[in-house]
Design a protein around this nucleic acid. Structure first.
Lengths: 333, 333
DNA sequence: CTGAAAGCGCTTACAG
DNA sequence: CTGAAAGCGCTTACAG
């Protein structure tokens, strides 16, 4: 590949001058600049971003560490992030961790080695080693869709998962439901815990007792929802409603109910969480809790951008409000 | 951030020695190495990948340029790519182009500036400027889910879209359908054209004439499918089947049919293309053409890796076979 | 307006 | 086994 030296040599001038032409420096003769630009084109020269980055101590790169880009939840967040960040000249590097702790650690090391300017992260589970890595990072970080861990002065952008779960439960209880089951995500997950707590606390707040037989935890897929629904239904004949901790689980539950011929919402009410696109499909029309996913991504991007530009900026965390989206899977009893 | 100089100074030794410890060079005393490693840990030192890249002329970075990471089609491809590439030590940088020609060009420039080692790309529409950019790139490229353009000696990994479309049509015609509509994607798209050709050619091959009123082109979303189905149905009372150029369009069509109370497959048969997850949902069970998406991503990754490692490697293009997945949206007439 | 020199943070022959 | 020096491709004071 051609370097700045090649184009300088070609014209018998110094690299400083070529550099000036490249960077639109005012101290350069129009004619010289024109000649340089021509040679650049002819030699197919492109400035080397590594060399530039080394000098400027800036790479214009932001890392986005998320559990699974194929999860529609995160791909929309990612789009929000990317949209605002490319607008201001950054390239975003995705780190797909598949919720694998080793991959999370690997991505953080890589981010540091590669001198990324900032990081937007959704770690799945925060153990001590990961926390230490964050503390040693020396790169601005914002947490996305989860709160920042204790002992780390990083802002976060999140939705109030606990409140969202409470809203779902209040809706069900408000409709007269008393026997409400819960299909949850794996316990070690941060937000699985919050949504579960919302379920339990709201039950208690209304003098209801969560029935351990009507609670299942441990998955996040449609297949899991199907299985969980079948298990719960068989053990709880008096159940009239289900709160699923995410939409995929809810859809799995709906599938099982449809296959069994149990009509929704006549015999069973279902509420999900996330408001994925698929939830609004004609056959599903799931009542669920919406999070402004794209907005969350955009906000995180804006914060990291500002943190990088203003070293003294004390970023505030942002809580987005969840919203109940009423569709056709609930009825009054 | 600490540099190699800092750790050298700390121990009163030269940077060369520190570098040797870092790179597991054999010519170094065990004791010295141990001391260096300790200081590295204490100073929280991480080698600077930019500096390394500058010297080695390698960044261990691969660009993946795709139209839309939130499109489940591409997110699965992306996962396949990432899986094999991270395994061999690369970081993959996504370029979400949203089918915007400017973004495609921007990403290619960026890739060159950043000295990416290789590129896997799915450009949406290949105009002259883009082609020229590819020709000037000087970076190994493999095309994914579309063929490489003429005038560029780059391999591709693709599925035979034309054949897939023919398979869908043969299935329908084999079931006795004669009046078959087509819901297509925007005409400028590369594969939209191929799938459309498959529709037209198969009709002709069976002595059938495609009816312009039963053909619609121009979208790729569920909303579009809904609208297209309504338009086609209103103008073609004798229609018994629809071939939709992708699953989202097919699902939109199914939605409209469901809303109108037109039973599928009793009154209307529908075939899609892509075999998205959502196509197998209990309420949809769409008959469609499957492409081995993840495998395609993996294969592209393997090819680019080998192209980078072996300069003389003459990569062969790979065609994956499409497959008809029969579910519940077609019947014999 | 232009060039020579130093430096960004590292690696790698070369000499000892 | 260790260090001094050159160099990767650029930018940026500084001098002229």
């Amino acid at each position: 590949m051609a370097t700045i030296k090649d184009v300088a040599k070609e014209l018998g001038i110094s690299v400083s001058t070529v550099s000036r032409a490249l960077n639109n420096h005012p101290d350069i003769k129009e004619q010289t600049k024109k000649e340089i630009l021509e040679v650049i084109k002819r030699l197919n020269y492109t400035p080397n971003a590594l060399a530039r980055g080394l000098i400027h101590k800036k790479t214009n790169t932001i890392g986005l560490m998320i559990p699974d880009i194929a999860d529609p939840f995160f791909s929309e967040i990612a789009n929000g992030v990317e949209e605002v960040l490319t607008e201001v000249g950054y390239q975003v590097v995705y780190g797909n961790t598949m919720r694998n702790p080793d991959k999370e650690k690997l991505f953080l090391s890589s981010a540091k080695e590669r001198q990324m300017d900032g990081l937007i992260v959704t770690p799945n589970f925060m153990d001590e080693k990961l926390l230490e890595q964050f503390q040693r990072l020396q790169i601005p970080v914002v947490f996305l869709r989860r709160r920042s861990p204790e002992g780390l002065a990083a802002p976060f952008v999140d939705v109030d998962h606990y409140k969202g779960a409470c809203m779902a439960m209040e809706h069900l209880i408000g409709l007269g439901h008393r026997h409400i089951g819960f299909i949850g995500m794996p316990e070690l997950s941060f937000l699985a815990e919050l949504r579960y707590q919302g379920y339990v606390d709201t039950m208690h707040a209304h003098g209801l007792t969560p029935n351990p037989n009507a609670i299942t935890r441990g998955g996040r897929t449609i297949a899991h929802g199907r299985e969980a629904m079948s298990r719960i239904c068989e053990q709880n004949k008096d159940l009239t409603a289900i709160f699923a901790a995410n939409d995929l689980l809810a859809i799995g539950a709906l599938e099982w109910l449809a296959i069994q011929g149990i009509p929704v919402p006549e015999k069973m009410s279902v509420v999900g969480f996330d408001n994925l696109e698929v939830a609004s499909l004609h056959w599903i029309k799931l009542t669920t809790i919406a999070q402004p996913r794209k907005q969350m991504g955009e906000e995180a991007a804006r914060i990291i951008d500002r943190m990088i530009r203003e070293e003294t900026y004390q970023a505030q965390s942002v809580f987005f409000e969840p919203e109940l989206i009423q569709r056709n899977t609930c009825r009054e009893v």
